[in-house]
Design a protein around this nucleic acid. Sequence first.
RNA 1: GGCCGAGUGGUGAAACCGGUAUACACGCAAGACUUAAAAUCUUGUGUCGCAAGACGUGCGGGUUCGAGUCCCGCCUCGGCCACCA
Length: 898
Amino acid sequence: MKRYQPSEFEPTLIAEWNKDKVYKAVLSKGKKKMYILDMFPYPSGAGLHVGHPRGYTATDILTRYYRMKGYSVLHPMGWDAFGLPAENAAIKDKTNPKKVVPKNIDNFRRQMQMLGFSYDWDLEFATTDPDYYQWTQWLFIEFFKMGLLTKKMTPINYCPNCKTGLAEEEVLADGTHERCGTKITKKELPQWIFRITEYADRLLEDLKDLKWPTGILEMQKNWIGRKEGININYRVKGTKELITCFTTRPDTNFGATFIVVAPEHKFVASLLKSKAKSQKSKVEDIKKYVEKAKSKTELERQAEGKKKTGVFTGFYAINNLNDRKMPIWISDFVLKDFGTGAVVGVPGHDLRDFEFASEFDIDVVRVVVGSDGDKSPITKKKQVQEEEGTMINSSFLDGMDIHKATKKIMNYIEKKGWGKRVVTYHLRDWIFSRQRYWGEPIPMIYCESCAKNKVSYFNTSKNQKSVISNQKTKKEVKSRINEIKDSLYGWFPVSEKELPLELPDLDKYEPLATGESPLAAVDTFINTTCPNCGGKAVRETDTMPNWAGSCWYFLRFAFPRHPELGSGSKRDPGSGSGMRTKSPSRKEWDKMMKSADKWMPVDWYFGGAEHAVLHLLYARFWMKAMYDIGLVSQTEPFMRLRNVGMILAEDHRKMSKSWGNVINPDDVVNEFGADSLRLYEMFMAPFSQEIAWSTRTLQGSYRFLTRVWRMCKQYSIQIKSHTSVEKDHQEVLNELHRTIEKVSSDIENVKYNTAVAAMMEFLNFWEDELKDQIVNSKGKSKMPLSSKSAKEFLKILAPFAPFMTESIWYDIFEEKESIHLADWPIADKKLLKMEVITIPVQVNGKLRATLTMDKKQADEKTVVKKALEDEKVKKYTDGKKYKVIYVKGKILNLVLKK
RNA sequence: GGCCGAGUGGUGAAACCGGUAUACACGCAAGACUUAAAAUCUUGUGUCGCAAGACGUGCGGGUUCGAGUCCCGCCUCGGCCACCA
């Protein structure tokens, strides 16, 4: 044991920790529990890049800290292995993802162990394990039973070149396919829709209980986008039709001058059907415009910018408030999915409406006067008044401010029966079907003959039993089912006994030209019997999106172990020993959850901010739905959330193979050891901040560890000889305890950069003290800290540098049990207090001197007296009157009087 | 366009409730060791100035004995959403 040479002991320690199961998660009675979780990774072929360990080291430090503090800690790791990247990589290599994924997992696991993360590897599993996804399928069926899933025609993104439907993430911002650059079109396909919007209010409401970064909370809030407004019905002159418009600004309704509907609006369809009612030339125009609008790609829409296009229908709607005839237009700036797909145009008080009105010469009426007092007619874009103001030209609203007017007019319209208050959301229902191979098969069966007889799961008598006890939820479920059951004739869930419904092994699994899933071409998979009538039936061939697996994995980690079921089979490459489960059933779930519930919820959740709305929203949704069925006892999965900042390459660009600027952790560990990498990534910047990699700065962390190593090495003589009675230097001891205190609180606040700085500061102090010793005792080194105290320092460094501290712990200090199971040191409150303090002295707010004195003597009188003895202070105050401002023990300010 | 962050030395950054601005580290400079280099160690390092001192946390104001921190008005950069009615 000479030089600090990490490669000499790091691999050995990994093997020992694994063998002794040092990091086994055990829930002990009388101990507080702590569940610390990373967003589990997708195991790509490239292996870990240097950005992954930043988050994983952070959770590892928390885990090690709480473990040493005596908590029961759950810290697992697994693999989110379904999804497009694996599938595309496998297609490219002409192999099956089933073969590639296990290899990738092995590599990821090896790298994580290399970095010393203290996961309980026995709990490992992958979302692609049939043993896991049988439960994901089971949950799908439970959600189906409570009316949260329905199937309907929905437009999806489609690439005409690759002949496949695409996920949102495969469509670039300019509307092209990321692989081939072809413009994406829309294609209507039957899709399973997950009705997340049913939970919009609760997803919004419950945000208030979460200790999450405010930015993420804000993003979820915006994404849900709750808006209160009113739906107003307008009569179409000369017909029996009504057009309903959503608006949040009914106060301006006296200023409404036109109506615009989306090209997809049902009024347009009925218009085209009954040609007789409108002029023939108009019908042709309308047809042309609607077709063009529907075929427009995102790219074309963006190229057009905000220039308004549209076509007049020849019809007018009547504004009941003032009997105004408002022309009805069709335009693609109105979105079919927002509000009612129809807008009432108030060009004086909405910029977009004004642009439309100017384009087509529609009247503009002012109904609000803003703070500029401008009452003149609105003719210029600048004059459009969207802000606060007072009503004019609005009959009984005149003189009111806009908020009061809004309330008044809403009441008025509702009373008259012209409209109804409504709440709308930005949140859309979740399209849950993928026409892809590499995902969980959706466990549903379609029976044509049952469909013909209008039979579905929901009207077969044996299925009417409800397990939901909450009356309110029961009612909601009932009304949901009533709404959707007619669209689900012929659909039945796969029976529990059949789970897992396994993904078949296929040689060819490229998406089909029809836009269907590749499973649609596999006869042995499709054909089955109807669970209801026993006749011929077919399986659903779509698979679930890659988000499904991450919606409940945090529960699965907490499931009790079943060693009697054996370890993961070859088929389940990820499942660790004792993590297999029996077939899914409500009884089995309840048994599992009874014990898993003790770990829930996740106390600390770490991952990238890019999941702010997707994964985090979906998982919260599942949790609430599960709660409603009684599957879990909590409504929120993740109590505290922290976002890890991205690590950029040294050239400040994103790390990417194509730039050739990727840093591989294997190389870093080879050169500097895992501890240096961990320490550096914690020290480099505040945790959530994006930062560029710097090998130079990493060397600073390496240097620090080398110095700690050297320092500790000097204890070996002392310890082996057992001769000298060790004694702590009071000042070093005080400094040590201050460091213990600082590091402890910094860890709990995820401020690792300052925690590391504090330890560096301490080492500087400790070394200086030793040098003084050597000088004073003429070369004979006597350590300024006892080995007992030195070990305390080693302990607080242990979560950051688990390898080196463990190695010293065993070899120098001759300990027998792992440092990572030792007790966390507690700072001695008596030692924290500063006996001697420095007080800055200011004259007129400018620093002129500092006083060093005993804390007990630092009363105002003494401090002022001492300050006035200072030459510099005297220079400014001599012969002048001054006011004394003294904050005890903090600062003295002498303010000269004029 | 909407919402949310952030601007501090040559660089990454620190500063708890308004109380010594620049902790810790990198880099740089000089020196020690060495035949030499690397490694290591020592000292210095906000700007201007010989110094005393003055100035200094994106810019302009304000509150205060005292402002990186609070208030008002701007500028720049980053993130998310976006023809959202």
